[in-house]
Amino acid sequence: MVVDSQLMSFFTAGSLVVIGIFAALFLDNLIKKIIGLAFLADGVNLFIITMGYKPGGIVYIFLPDMVVSNFAQTASYPLPFALVLTNIVIGASTLAVILGLVIILNKRHGSLSASKILRDKGE
């Protein structure tokens, strides 16, 4: 049986999103929550990459010896890849801020338990 690689990739992305949301909402350990958030962001990135995948497509760089019409028909769509690059940068920055906050809160409370640190404190 031949499995469609694009479909499998979409399935993996969906799984990462679901696992990520579950971990971020239901796990108590803050580091595990952060790993869940990273899963969620990576799931969305994989979804975008998979969407931009074109079977048999070529890289979207127009070289001097290329014919415009051939290029237009065969090149994959560059926009999803540009979005992923931007989102990776955003994700890394946000993750750095979250980890910084967790380091400070861990020093203050001596714990990584979200229920201990966040209950009735942040509201």
Binding site: I21, L25, K33, L37, L40, T94, I98, L101, V102, L105
Partner: peptide, 12 residues
Amino acid sequence: ETALKYILLGNI
């Protein structure tokens, strides 16, 4: 604590 809570929700 509030900042962490806000950014965690923001990351979902």
